[in-house]
């Protein structure tokens, strides 16, 4: 565990908590893509099956349990409890265009052709693109609430911080995982346009609004 990895995890944790607070306090999931949230739930379920087979640390287990619970809880809040506030007319990204290619890619490019390893690989590939329905929704409506922007910023920063962690681990531990690194870079690049808008608009107190 190094400082970049810890900062990345905390950023990821913060993103999830910000989203849950937004939904809970406003009793609304307006502006949030249910499709992205379903993809994140699939990502965690397929990645953390090793909870049953491999113990790493209490920290690792606690975080995995929280990510699993919170992502399934978010899907529950969006599709059941606060269903009436879910903005499904604007949430139209076709997730099969993400699920099928990442599933195929995980069958071809993996560390080992085993069920657990392929599911892990699939979760890594899927996570890298899972935010696309949310970004598509923001671009479709042309704006995002500040709290949604903070959520996206924390969520995007997390993988960026992991890249620093991977650089650190490569130099100081001789460890690298090429699948995680390439997917993590793709994931971070997808946020670049949003990061630019966040820094130039939201941090200056303006609402995130896309140019018409």
């Amino acid at each position: 565990m190094n400082i970049f990895r810890l900062a990345g995890d905390l950023s990821h944790l913060a993103a999830i908590i910000i989203l849950l607070i937004k939904i809970w306090k406003t009793r609304s999931c307006a502006g949030i893509s249910g499709r992205s949230q379903v993809l994140f739930a699939i990502v965690f379920i397929t990645r953390y099956l090793d909870l049953f087979t491999n113990f790493i640390s209490a920290y690792n287990t606690a975080m995995k349990v929280f990510f699993l619970g919170s992502s399934i809880g978010t899907v529950y809040l969006m599709y059941l409890k606060f269903k009436a506030t879910y903005d499904h007319n604007h949430d139209t990204f076709r997730i099969e265009f993400l699920l099928l290619p990442t599933a195929l890619l995980s069958l071809v490019l993996n560390h080992e052709f085993s069920v657990m390893e392929i599911l892990w690989t699939f979760s890594i590939y899927l996570e890298s693109v899972a935010i696309l329905p949310q970004l598509f929704m923001v671009s479709k409506t042309g704006e995002a609430e500040s709290i949604t922007s903070h959520y996206l910023f924390a969520l995007g920063s997390y993988r960026g911080l992991y890249i620093l962690n991977w650089i650190y681990r490569y130099y100081f531990e001789g460890f690298y995982d090429i699948i995680a690194i390439v997917a993590g870079c793709v994931q971070t690049i997808l946020y670049c346009d949003f990061f630019y808008l966040y820094i130039t608009k939201v941090l200056k107190g303006k609402k995130l609004q896309l140019p018409a």
């Binding site: 090793d50 995995k64 990510f67 962690n165």
Partner: peptide, 10 residues
Amino acid sequence: GKAAPDHDEL
């Protein structure tokens, strides 16, 4: 070494 690394990250 092993083909698949231990996935110790989240």
